[in-house]
Amino acid sequence: TAGNKIFQFGPCKVSMSMTEIRSGFNAIKTNIQARDPIRTLSILSHPHSLHKVKPSDRCCITHHLFNFYVDKVFKHCKTEDSYVNRKISSIANSFLSVRRKLGQCHEQNQCMCGQESTEKMKQILGNYEGLNVTSAAIKSLGELDILLDWME
């Protein structure tokens, strides 16, 4: 089906059209990654992979990452290619929808933040701010599958 996935983070349950997001991303992945000249750096995986995050911190780091993409990344990814822009819009609006649900969990204290997720988010923002904003945004968008794979 449209591959709606229910993500369970302890008491917090979030449903997400994962297949729609992935198909939107896969449609532009090559184009976006080709715009990222800096191969030796990673925004999400440096210095440690997301897989190192403790299960108890998964909800919080997911919430932070959705905020990161909605607040910082998508808006700086506008391209000259209308098709790419449409797919970015599709992903961004899906992320906005999911972020709202994660935010509700956060407000109901079902998405607690530990030291590790705070630390990890600091690293990601540090990696992001170490580049100029367009390069950082394009690189982050190109790494979206890292986030989706980790979530699944």
């Binding site: 909605v70 822009n85 906005l96």
Partner: peptide, 19 residues
């Protein structure tokens, strides 16, 4: 053209053409 909630709230109310 279309404009999602994301464009309204985070992308200066930009519109996107449908080619």
């Amino acid at each position: 053209e279309f404009q999602g909630e994301y464009e309204r709230e985070y992308a200066n109310e930009s519109w996107i053409p449908i080619c």
